[in-house]
């Protein structure tokens, strides 16, 4: 359904991603795992065209996304939640959600958003910048969901968030996936979180995939070996 091939990304002269290749099935959740600086964010940013790729093909349901700008990739079915959330600090919570609806078919925030994240309803008139990290994470997920993505991309959603909220986010994502019919790509360093949500795991090291595992056969010790220093 979603397939990336031959992806090469550079920052100036330095070659960051080397010939990456990945596929994602319908309803599947793929975890991209690796330590700091291994290229997780670079990969996800390249998928949403926040940074340019030197070469590579990105196909969604047979459609080539590589020539498209960010907004057109969102319209084509990608949703993106960046590392650090990147909430618009001076927009209200409601406006932050609405900013994700430019390509959506309707212009009213769908009810399931507030059912999943009740705190966003309570805080809808507050400025996004005044929310706590966990609340901002929920807001960023809501902003991406309202564009009705086929593939939702999450970059380190647990970073800087307390364990109880992490559990809650994992639970919400599992429910949403079932109800809203999208696939998920999530980058992480925290294995416990991805074990809660992912079907398949790819380990990235210095811009290359070095290990792959499916949920049923995960060797937790081996994974931890890749994630700890």
């Amino acid at each position: 359904m979603f397939a990336v091939e031959n992806l090469n990304v550079y920052y100036g002269e330095s070659h960051i991603l080397h010939n990456l290749q990945l596929t994602l099935g319908a309803h599947e959740t793929l975890a991209i795992m690796g330590r700091n600086g291994m290229g997780k964010s670079t990969l996800l940013k390249a998928l949403i065209a926040m940074i340019p790729a030197k070469t590579g093909s990105i196909q969604l349901d047979g459609r080539e996304l590589a020539p498209l700008k960010s907004y057109a990739r969102v319209a084509a079915g990608l949703g993106y939640v960046p590392q650090g959330r990147m909430i618009f600090p001076y927009l209200t919570v409601l406006e932050n959600i609405l900013s994700g609806m430019d390509s959506a078919t309707n212009s009213v925030v769908p009810e399931y958003i507030y059912e999943t994240f009740p705190v966003l309803w309570d805080m809808r008139a507050r400025r996004g910048g005044n929310l706590s990290g966990g609340q901002q994470q929920q807001l960023a997920i809501a902003r991406a969901l309202v564009s009705e993505p086929r593939v939702l991309i999450l970059d380190e959603p647990t970073e800087g968030i307390q364990p109880s909220i992490i559990k809650e986010i994992a639970r919400s994502l599992n429910t949403l996936k079932k109800e809203r019919n999208f696939s998920l790509i999530v980058s992480e360093q925290v294995l416990s979180f991805t074990l809660d949500i992912a079907d398949r795991f790819l380990i990235i090291e210095k811009g290359r995939f070095v290990h792959e595992a499916v949920r049923e056969y995960v060797d937790a010790d081996k994974m931890m070996g890749y994630l700890t220093i």
Binding site: M50, K69, Y71, F88, S99, D102
Partner: peptide
């Protein structure tokens, strides 16, 4: 207005506005 919201999002974070689905150009 809807346009105002687009404008303010782009002014606050251009790259993110694009990745949220707004045609920044």
């Amino acid at each position: 207005s809807r346009w105002g919201l687009r404008i303010r999002s782009v002014m606050q974070n251009r790259a993110m506005a694009g990745a949220a689905g707004i045609n920044t150009a």
